[in-house]
């Protein structure tokens, strides 16, 4: 099993010196995100996110199953993350490594525990049949900031996904195929996006810790601490995860929360815009194409 390639001493010193001069290696500002691209697949529930060179592909699928016995009114929602050797040679598929566990924990806390997806709406017949929604997150390329990108991709895919329409009479549930009835979107209560901050020791004596947003892989390897804040555009904090690492002044941390809120609002509008564009594209394809007499030339 090959080990992860660590940054060389040279790279580390170069990076630290650049930070001391308020420069980032790719020329961005400390609080600037890389370009975010979001595209959807032909099927419903497939989202592809690119954040710089990080690329994440999420697939949503749903099937009917029995609920947990202690929660008969709730549907199931699982998120699986895969850090495979495709991402980087030092990841193994069988053994979950530390970063993978932390990634899946944060996604779970952010999306499942905060009830972003209303699980009660997934219930078909209480105690017997519920929808089980499954989000498969595939990390295709790792260049830092997997958490933020994964979160955007899962939420975008959830908003994009359509589950088959159903009708229930008594004990029987009829699931209609896509041809019979138009599928319905999921019921999402709120959209908690994540923003990750990376902390570095201050380069000045008695200075504040340096805080960077949207770190690349190199910046992540050289960081001494990080915090992930999950918040939605209405100002509800869903989770904060600062799991050890270098300590940060409490007041500075509160400032980070405000930055996260502003950023999440931007992301929210961006995702909604993209979804609208995709919906328009589909619409033009389906209904209008049938009715138009014009030919493509």
């Amino acid at each position: 099993m090959p080990r992860e390639v660590e940054p060389s001493v040279n790279e580390r010193q170069f990076f630290e010196k650049a930070l001391a001069e308020n420069l980032r290696l790719d020329g961005r500002a400390f609080d600037q995100f890389r370009d975010l691209e979001l595209s959807f697949g032909d099927e419903f529930g497939v989202a592809d996110v690119r954040l710089g060179k990080t690329r994440i592909h999420t697939n949503i699928s749903a099937e009917v199953t029995t609920p947990y016995p202690d929660k008969p009114f709730d549907g199931l929602f699982t998120i699986t993350t895969e850090l495979s050797p495709m991402t980087s040679p030092h990841y193994e598929t069988s053994r979950p490594s530390d970063p993978e566990i932390l990634l899946s924990r944060i996604l779970e806390k952010n999306l499942r525990r905060s009830q972003a997806l209303d699980t009660e709406s997934l219930c078909l017949i209480a105690g017997h049949k519920v929808w089980s929604v499954r989000a498969d997150v595939h990390i295709l390329s790792h260049d830092g900031n997997l958490i933020d990108a994964s979160c955007i991709s899962v939420l975008a895919a959830l908003q994009h996904f359509r589950k088959p329409d159903t009708s229930s009479e008594g004990e029987n549930v009829t699931v209609y195929t896509l041809e019979e009835r138009d599928p319905v979107p999921l019921s999402l209560l709120h959209f908690p996006y994540c923003v990750t901050f990376s902390f570095y020791p201050s380069t000045v004596e008695e200075g504040e810790t340096v805080i960077l947003l949207d770190s690349t892989l190199l910046e992540e390897q050289l960081r001494e601490g990080s915090a992930t804040i999950g918040i939605n555009k209405d100002g509800e904090l869903c989770q904060i995860a600062k799991l050890g690492g270098i300590s940060v002044d409490a007041v500075a941390f509160l400032g980070c929360v405000q930055v996260a809120l502003a950023r999440v609002k931007e992301i929210s509008t961006f995702v909604i815009k993209r979804l609208a564009e995709d919906a328009k594209k589909r619409d033009k394809g389906d209904l209008m194409a049938e009715l138009r007499a014009e030919n493509d030339r």
């Binding site: 806390k109 525990r113 905060s114 915090a227 918040i231 100002g235 509800e236 904090l237 869903c238 989770q239 904060i240 995860a241 600062k242 799991l243 050890g244 690492g245 300590s247 940060v248 002044d249 409490a250 007041v251 941390f253 929360v257 809120l261």
Partner: peptide, 14 residues
Amino acid sequence: DSVSVLIMETKVQV
């Protein structure tokens, strides 16, 4: 006042 660990898993107004 420097915070080493901060974990919150429940929803709260900012």
